[in-house]
């Protein structure tokens, strides 16, 4: 159960007083039941690229592409109704910070149950039972109690588990995780990533993991796409990361401190204007 995402030459632009500004400039990607990591710095267009698949861009954004398909659905021409059948049901999106991404006036259980009910037929009670079951699946202790808590009563890690449970509720085929651990404590980060990795593998789903942490992404993904200024500068198998050739990728790798090969001074990433072209 996995959908194919096919993207050719995606371009996303925003209007500005000096004409449209293109922030994603011709990105192509293919994805099946595998784990793809998209790495890049803030503003490199990695989030917009992933969200374009669900057409969840800010209202002002303008999308163009030679081709953008989710299985047999042409996302470019699909209406809201068709997109709603994809969102949640076939592809979930996990956002960065559960503090803002969860509705503050609904309980965790109600938010998960809502996602479940949006795509399954069932009574409110059944949905609530499903929500508690999902909370158990994301390894929350005492799921029945947590289901009755409001987001401000949850820790960051718990909030992100609720978010994951919510996005898994309709059994999607693809999960897009947009910096799912950036807002969390370092100790919780690994737990959440392992949880996502485990659930995705077990359900045979596709995963797009967006991050600015290159080694982390390569650890969890099959393939890594490195983006810079709205373009893909390098795409390679995670196992071949050491063989990366693009100077930006090399720079990112070199500036990571290593315990095995300590350096007296970490090199600073030297940017080259040519990367923008």
């Amino acid at each position: 159960m996995s959908a194919r995402v096919e993207m050719r030459g995606l371009r996303v632009s925003f209007p500005s007083p000096r004409g449209p500004v293109e922030v994603v400039r011709g990105v192509s990607l293919d994805l099946g039941a595998e784990k793809l990591g998209i790495v890049g710095e803030s503003g490199s267009g990695k989030s917009l690229t992933a969200r374009a698949i669900l057409k969840l861009l800010p209202a002002a954004a303008h999308i163009r592409a030679e081709r953008l398909r989710f299985d047999d659905i042409d996302v470019l021409t699909a209406g809201e109704r068709q997109m709603r059948a994809i969102r949640g049901r076939r592809a979930g999106l996990i956002l960065q910070d559960p503090k803002y991404a969860l509705n503050p006036v609904m309980t965790a259980g109600a938010q998960i149950a809502e996602a479940w009910r949006a795509h399954h037929r069932g009574r409110r009670r059944q949905a609530m039972e499903a929500a508690v079951e999902l909370l158990a699946q994301v390894r929350i202790r005492d799921p029945a109690r947590v289901a009755g808590l409001y987001p401000h009563e949850l820790s960051g890690g718990m909030g992100q588990r609720v978010m994951i449970a919510m996005m898994l509720a309709p059994d999607p085929e693809l999960l897009i995780a947009d910096e799912p651990t950036s807002a969390l404590d370092a100790t919780v980060q690994a737990e959440i990533l392992r949880l996502i990795d485990d659930l995705v593998s077990r359900r045979g789903m596709g995963l797009i993991l967006i991050s600015h942490d290159l080694p982390l992404v390569s650890h969890f993904c099959d393939r890594v796409m490195v983006m810079y200024a709205g373009r893909v500068v390098e795409e390679l198998r995670a196992a071949d990361l050491a063989a990366a050739r693009h100077p930006y990728t090399r720079g990112l790798l070199d500036c990571m401190p290593s315990l095995l090969h300590p350096k007296p001074r970490l090199p600073v990433l030297a940017r080259d204007a040519a990367w923008n072209e």
Partner: peptide, 21 residues
């Protein structure tokens, strides 16, 4: 709010997002 993006990502109807969320 970010939770509106979440609600949209869940595939909810525009009306439900507007009124419920």
């Amino acid at each position: 709010g970010e939770y509106i993006v979440t609600a949209r990502a869940k595939g909810l109807s525009a009306r439900r997002i507007l009124w419920r969320h």
